[in-house]
């Protein structure tokens, strides 16, 4: 009974984090899945959202700027807006770059943002970060506070999903797919390709900012490590590709599935003894070593999914049935 209760609580944390990653994956899906924008700077927009949320809602502190103590929903809105503004600036400079170059440029910009958060001590408390960030519903008695927060995250994911599904089948969504598949043709029929791409980039980034705002609340503590690229950018890519690029349900499924794998593989290492003796020689720190095996397994699972289901678990569904489905192969060969 007690054990079951524990699993339920663990499930709540899995779902909360999974939901935050689902928002990131949905944001990336607008950019990559719909429009073909190769954004590897997810971590940067996540960090902008997280720091906005943190600095606007925390009480006055001598360690960083802020002390405004905005209500949580208002701060979340600000986080989205600020992320969108930063994304607009990035888009102005980079949106015309072709996919691989855009990828490297956004990666670089995200790292520069991280360095700024890390070095501007007066504003962000530098590497020590901001703590005591208020979380929605935290005043409820446990475990309801955690459950209510999870419910809020999942509700936001649902709303974003429904909006995106409408957008996908709308003329706007079809336009995006057209740009992704044949930019020249889209331009030839008089569409402002750069304009549409910018729109998609900014909307996606706003969702990443929102995810950042939720993450800051969930962790109650952020520092520049939140925008560390492996867990904040590449893991999201893995989620989207594994779940199914250009498929919103796929993005959500991928997020929950990969986060569960990422998190739950830890349980395996707990079963190992610390050391064992073989031939009179002690092989020590087995648990430490097993942590490396875990990372190896994550890499291997990734390779397996990539090779066995290159279209993702839920492949793209076209709004119009008549379109040819060769998009995935000619997307990057120009």
């Amino acid at each position: 009974m007690e054990q079951l209760y524990g699993y339920v609580l663990y499930g709540v944390t899995l779902a909360s984090m999974g939901g935050i990653y689902a928002l990131l994956a949905l944001g990336l899906n607008i950019q990559w899945g719909f429009t073909g924008l190769f954004n590897t700077g997810i971590a940067g927009f996540l960090a902008v959202g997280a720091y906005t949320q943190a600095l606007l809602t925390t009480p006055l502190s001598s360690r960083h700027i802020g002390g405004i103590e905005l209500p949580i929903p208002l701060a979340m809105l600000c986080a989205m807006v600020l992320s969108a503004i930063v994304a607009y600036g990035v888009a102005r400079a980079c949106i015309r770059l072709r996919s691989d170059y855009l990828a490297i440029a956004t990666l670089g910009i995200a790292e520069i943002l991280r360095l700024i958060f890390k070095n501007e001590l007066w504003a962000t408390n530098g590497p020590r970060g901001v703590s005591q960030i208020p979380r929605a519903f935290e005043d409820l008695p446990p475990p309801w506070n955690a459950i209510a927060f999870m419910a809020m995250v999942l509700l936001i994911v649902l709303v974003v999903y429904l909006l995106m599904e409408r957008a996908r089948v709308s003329p706007w969504g079809r336009m995006m797919a057209a740009i992704r598949e044949n930019e020249e043709a889209a331009a030839a029929i008089g569409k402002h390709v750069a304009h549409y791409r910018t729109e998609s980039f900014v909307i996606g980034a706003a969702m990443m900012g929102l995810a950042g705002a939720l993450l800051a609340q969930y962790l109650k503590q952020i520092d520049p490590q939140v925008s560390e690229p492996v867990t904040a950018t590449f893991l999201v890519w893995v989620m989207l590709i594994a779940g199914g690029s250009a498929n919103n349900r796929g993005a959500i499924l991928g997020a929950f599935l990969i986060w569960t794998i990422w998190s739950a593989t830890q349980i395996l290492t707990g079963f190992l003894p610390n050391e064992f003796v073989a031939f009179g020689y002690t092989v020590g720190n087995l648990q430490v070593r097993s942590a490396y095996v875990r990372v190896f397994l994550i890499g291997l699972i990734l390779q397996f999914i990539l090779q066995r289901r290159p279209q993702g678990l839920l492949p793209e569904k076209r709004p119009a049935a008549s379109r040819p489905s060769s998009a995935h192969t000619d997307r990057d060969s120009s």
Binding site: V226, Q266, A291
Partner: peptide, 20 residues
Amino acid sequence: QADSQCDAKAAVDAASKVVN
């Protein structure tokens, strides 16, 4: 043992696992 990776995200996840 659980891996906190020197990162709040990972630490929260790891702690949640060992606690629950």
